[in-house]
Design a protein around this nucleic acid. Structure first.
Length: 754
DNA sequence: GACCTGCTGCGGAATG
């Protein structure tokens, strides 16, 4: 799906209008590549980028060809107008992408004698110093390293970028809605602000969701002027299967039991947690995927470890070479590269991974995708699906493995609806038939990132006055939702926390705490990272575990797909030494939850009410769906939202995380004991009648404002620097990110009218 | 019932 059909003859380039506008050197390079023709987006990007007077958004389903689409005209322009300093600044979300791009761009760069420089944490300081002395050509950099440039080389920045022709953002979609995205927008603006002119921005994005939002991200307030170049949909064939499994009580693995009897090892009891469904899924993955190259996506890092361990043991037992490798964010670079190398080799390779392989390295040709457990969003499912069938003509194949409990008298009502299966069907429906995708939430205030940007701007200049700060960051910058009043309160708060101080002539400088923050290298990231232990064996780092996972000498551990025993724990240096062992237990990695969109829950409701049986379900999945529907009607959920369950009342509102979260808080402000549990809100010690009275009372009131609702939330400090905010600022910040009061109020209104 | 991303300058020791 990345390639346009190589139908045209080599003569076609002569008829291409764009090709002839390119610099002869660039044309020569293209000839040398022996491409049959320029791809559609490459052809269409030439004139608007060469013009150099507008922002351009290039989107295509996968990475292929987008980089060249942007850089052929960019190199062309750099040949004609070399200018002073850096000619093009390209910002990328991953170090691996920068390395990859450097490899591709340095080739043409060498031929044209345009310097291309990669710049991130793994690049040696000497190379960076040399570029600072003699800036030129193309700079490939992460947002964090660009932040560091502003902080450490504030006075040189203007000269460094004075001749900038273009600013490119790679994988733009990966930034939208996040703290890093807000940081990037602020940095883009600060680059223009320091050289006192507008620089054309080129965004490279996957075709996920709303392209208007991507344009708005690229140039806030001027999205209509962004020229959009979208590749035609190649209409690749998609094959989908959803396999259902019944979760039963854990059984003893016979082979393991035998091992245990032989070894007489007490700690092997930890192995007995494998339930029947997990063993069945493992067996199917082993049977169907072995011998080919596939990606197996699993929802959590600990489940990745558990499945890798099971699949490796199965390979052992069957005396076949191991083709299964783990890949997730807590594994060391070396361990991850092992899996990545195997993927790029021509040997059959199956990588069991979390979201780490959704983006980034080119995984080459992957036959199929497995998704174990329900997906949580359409956008991530689409990204995963796009990783398979990359060769022209190959279909994209995805298999979902979904476990649901056997329904007994003790099964929770919400579990008897088999929501994991129905959520999976909902996501497939929205992805394939509705062609819908979650838009990112762009209304967040990002006050934590604003703290970072205030401190960074002060460090850049040594001192700034409050009005300048407001103009650069809020009025014309990335934080346009911050009012002047809010900003004044915000600065006072930073002063109170000793992050900033005011000199007698009104200049804002760093306070003691601010200095300390800015002078540590951890300052450059906008996002929060937990403290971790390093897991080491024979001097080699395997990866990291969160500090709150209890590690003691003699503990058995499954990590990086292998089994270990803890030899020693160095609490001071946070290093844990391990050695190979035959027993093991999967660790807990921690980590918070994400959000589910309203549309997914509404689609689930429609699926329960429908009689349609999707063709992509297997026998067990069909049975489970029928069972879920029967229970849905048995509980009468087709015409009511409240359900008595003993002393509890369940509220089903069929909406996403923000709305559920808001209703949960609304009920708590009414003095009720409430709990969130899957798709239901559980209210203790009440009846549907009594709860309905409360709901009516809530609806009769004016829609409650988000700020006063946020007051009920105990722990609102989520972002990296949130701990410096006062209660009021925290409330605004939390409400904008996590609450949807008017939507919740509308939802309750519908519900009460029933 | 979850996920991922990223990071500088310096001082001191070892090496050519």
């Amino acid at each position: 799906m990345t390639t346009s059909p190589p139908s045209s003859s080599s003569g076609e380039q002569q008829t291409s209008s764009g090709f002839h506008q390119l610099h002869p050197g660039v044309q020569k390079w293209i000839w040398q590549q022996k491409w049959p023709a320029l791809r559609d987006i490459q052809e269409r990007a030439i004139l608007p980028i060469l013009a150099g007077d507008r922002d351009v958004l290039i989107s295509a389903a996968t990475a292929g060809g987008k980089t060249e689409a942007a850089f052929l005209p960019i190199f062309s322009r750099l040949m004609e107008e070399p200018g002073m300093g850096i000619g093009t600044l390209c910002i990328s979300p991953l170090k691996a992408l920068i390395n990859d791009q450097f490899r591709r761009l340095s080739e043409i760069g060498e031929q044209l004698e345009i310097k291309v420089t990669p710049w991130h944490g793994d690049i040696d300081a000497g190379r960076k110093r040399r570029l600072l002395k003699q800036p030129s050509g193309v700079l490939l950099i992460t947002p964090e390293s660009l932040e560091a440039l502003f902080v450490r080389h504030g006075s040189e920045i203007a000269g460094f970028f004075q001749g900038l022709n273009y600013l490119v953002v790679d994988e733009l979609h990966a930034f939208i809605g996040s703290e890093r995205g807000k940081q990037l927008q602020s940095l883009m603006h600060r680059v223009e602000q320091v050289i006192r002119r507008r620089v054309p921005r080129i965004g490279l994005s996957a075709t996920l969701g709303d392209m208007e939002l991507a344009a708005e991200f690229l140039r806030t307030g001027k999205a209509v002027q962004v020229e959009q170049i979208e590749s035609e949909d190649e209409g690749q064939e998609i094959q989908i299967q959803v396999k259902g499994y019944r979760k039963t009580v854990p059984v003893l693995d016979r082979a393991l039991n035998l091992n245990k009897a032989l070894n007489l090892n007490q700690d092997e009891t930890e192995d007995l947690g494998d339930s029947q469904d997990e063993m069945d899924i493992t067996a199917h993955l082993f049977r169907v995927l072995r011998g080919e190259t596939n990606l197996i996506f699993i929802n959590s890092r600990s489940a990745v470890e558990a499945y890798t361990d099971r699949l490796c043991r199965l390979s052992d037992q069957q005396r076949v070479p191991n083709e299964f490798f783990p890949h997730h964010g807590s594994l060391s670079k070396e361990i991850r590269e092992e899996a990545e190398q195997a993927l790029k080799s021509d040997k059959p390779t199956n990588v069991i991974c979390t979201t780490t392989l959704e983006m980034g390295i080119d995984v080459g040709s992957v036959k199929s995708i497995a998704q174990v457990g329900p997906p949580f969003s359409v956008s991530s499912t689409r990204q995963r699906l796009g990783r398979s069938g990359r060769k022209a003509g190959d279909p994209a194949i995805i298999r979902f493995y979904i476990s649901e409990p056997d329904v007994t008298s003790t099964t929770l009502i919400q579990d008897a609806l088999h929501p994991a299966l129905v959520q999976t069907i909902a996501i497939v429906n929205l992805m394939v038939f509705e062609r819908w995708c979650e838009p990112p939430i762009v209304t967040k205030l990002h006050l934590s990132t604003l703290i970072q940007q205030v401190l960074s701007l002060i460090a850049q200049y040594g001192g700034v006055n409050a009005l300048q700060l407001y103009q650069v960051l809020c009025q014309t910058g990335a934080f346009q939702q911050i009012t002047q009043e809010m900003f004044i309160q915000f600065l006072r708060q930073l002063g109170a926390k000793d992050l900033i101080q005011q000199t007698h002539d009104g200049l804002l400088i760093l306070g003691l705490k601010g200095e300390r923050l800015v002078n540590h290298y951890s300052f450059y990231t906008a996002f929060q990272t937990p403290e971790e232990y390093r897991i080491v064996t024979q001097g080699k780092t395997l990866g990291t575990l969160p500090i709150d996972f209890p590690l003691i000498e003699g503990l058995f551990l499954i990590f990086a797909g292998r089994r270990w025993m803890v030899l020693s724990v160095d609490a001071e240096h946070k290093v844990v030494d391990v050695a190979r062992a035959s027993a093991g237990r999967v660790p807990k990695f921690g980590g918070g939850g994400g959000a589910i969109h309203d549309r997914i829950r509404q689609e689930m409701y429609q699926i329960y009410r429908s009689e349609k049986v999707p063709v992509f379900l297997d026998r067990t999945a069909v049975d489970l769906l029928q069972e879920g529907r029967e229970n849905f009607y048995r509980f009468g959920l087709d015409n009511r939202y409240l359900l008595q369950d003993g002393k509890k009342t369940l509220l089903f509102c069929w909406m996403g995380s923000q709305v559920i979260n808001t209703i949960y808080l609304l009920l708590r402000t009414q003095g009720l004991q409430v709990e969130l549990n899957g798709i239901a809100i559980v209210v203790h010690d009440t009846t549907p009648e009594r709860l309905m009275k409360k709901l009516e009372a809530i609806v009769d009131m004016e829609p409650v404002d988000a700020i006063s609702l946020a007051e009920v939330v105990e722990d609102k400090a989520i972002g990296k620097h949130d701990l410096f905010l006062n209660e009021e600022l925290l409330g605004w910040n939390y409400a904008a990110s996590h609450l949807a009061p008017s939507k919740a109020w509308e939802t309750l209104q519908v519900l009460v009218k029933q």
